[in-house]
Amino acid sequence: MTSAELTIGQLSERSGVAVSALHFYEAKGLLSSRRTGGNQRRYTRDSLRRVAFIRAAQRVGIPLAMVGEALARLPDARTPTRADWARLSAAWRGELDARIHQLTTLRDALSDCIGCGCLSMRRCRLANPGDIAATIGPGARRFDERGACRMRRP
């Protein structure tokens, strides 16, 4: 092992990320290692910055798939720089703003709904936003976890 390489345990300790998460990142193509003759993983020191980049993106709510797409666009799959982070975070701003708006709306609707206590299918902004059930037709409805309205079958 060269001094420019880290074991998975060292990378985990220095980055504060569990070994299992590092394995997961590697399986998703977000991180790479070389294998020794004994089939042990070795990471270059710049993997620390790559892991920090991944964790920072996760903390602000960027899905790992989007992080992977961003990392794949870097030339020669190099480690992201401060300029890369600035460019990518600016590109993610629109999505983050949309999520903030959605969560704010949900928070406000939740307070209103709890306050009224009715959970009216006609006017409840959580169970039936914009009275979408009315557009499907008469009858009982049920909503899945995405808020999609489904006809209830007897």
Rank of each mutant, 00 (worst) to 15 (best):
P80E: 03
S47M: 03
R55N: 04
T135R: 13
Y25G: 00
A72I: 06
D76Y: 11
P129I: 07
A127C: 08
D76N: 13
Y25K: 03
W92C: 08
A18V: 08
L71S: 07
A86K: 14
L11D: 00
Q58Y: 03
W92A: 14
P138E: 14
I54H: 01
R34T: 13
G9S: 15
A52D: 12
S47K: 01
L31F: 05
T81Q: 12
N128A: 02
R73W: 09
V17M: 02
G38W: 07
Q102Y: 07
L31A: 04
R73S: 14
G38R: 11
W92I: 00
Y25P: 02
S47I: 00
R41L: 01
G38M: 06
D76G: 08
A57N: 00
A133R: 06
R78L: 04
L64S: 03
P80V: 03
L48Q: 05
R146H: 13
Q10K: 12
S12H: 03
A56P: 01
V67R: 01
R42I: 02
S32N: 09
D84W: 07
L106E: 10
A83C: 05
S33Q: 06
A134Q: 08
R146C: 09
F53S: 02
Y25A: 00
E145K: 04
S120C: 11
E13G: 12
N128Y: 05
P75W: 04
A148G: 04
R141C: 01
G38Y: 07
D144M: 01
K28F: 01
T44A: 14
C124R: 00
P63Q: 05
L71C: 09
G38K: 11
H101R: 15
Y43N: 00
L11K: 01
P75Y: 03
C124F: 01
A109Y: 05
G117F: 02
F143H: 06
R141Q: 02
D84H: 12
A127I: 12
F24Q: 08
T135H: 12
V17T: 13
A86S: 12
